[in-house]
Amino acid sequence: MLFAAALAFIFDPANLLGEKGILPRLMDHLLYTGLSLGVALLVGIPIGLIIGHTGKGKNFVIALTGSFRAIPTFGLLLFIILFTGLGLGPLVFVLAILAIPPIIAGAYSGLDAVNRETIDAARAIGMTEWQILGKVEIPLALPLILGGIRSATLQIIATATIAGYVGLTGLGRFLIEGLALHDYTLAFAGAILVAALALVADGILALIQRLVVPHGVSRGMARTTTRSGRRTAPPALTGTPITEG
């Protein structure tokens, strides 16, 4: 019943455009996501690559990802907004903060998983540190680097729903309005839209992730694992896509 009504709402052309339509809110949601992800990538990727390449700062990554996961982002966003006032800036700031740890962790663990012997050999034949990073480590680490970005993206999409609660729009606005007005059809429609966006984004990123697996590694018995248990890294650094919102 509710489900059918929600679907009817979604597919009613009257609800597509207009100020409170699905399309503009979807665009806003994507805008928040894109901006936050961009900021998070600018900060997170270099840090993750530096830590992964030098091997220094591993404990920092563990502490960072562990403690950030414990912070209730919903509370953090509200707290910050109480000081800064409503606006796009605070939202992007909080969402980026949320997304940085998984991005760092993905880049770090990707580089960490590259066989030490391969890197040693690259150095021995005369590659510079930059060449090792660019021609050996990053290509081999790309699937895990993208894994981190994928986690981060999903967390942002999910959490951006809260924007609807703090005076911005995005798909979350349907949820919040629906809850406030006890219009559960509207809330349900919003829930379906957010879930669909998350699933589509996840699917696209999963596809890209599969495509970037370097050839020689996907085929046959890839020897990308390192020896002497370097892979017993701490668990779950990259974190989970589920979050607030």
Partner: peptide
């Protein structure tokens, strides 16, 4: 330089 486990780049 030649090493024990060849040290070849697996993605090339």
């Amino acid at each position: 330089y030649v090493m024990q486990n060849s040290g070849l780049l697996p993605h090339r």
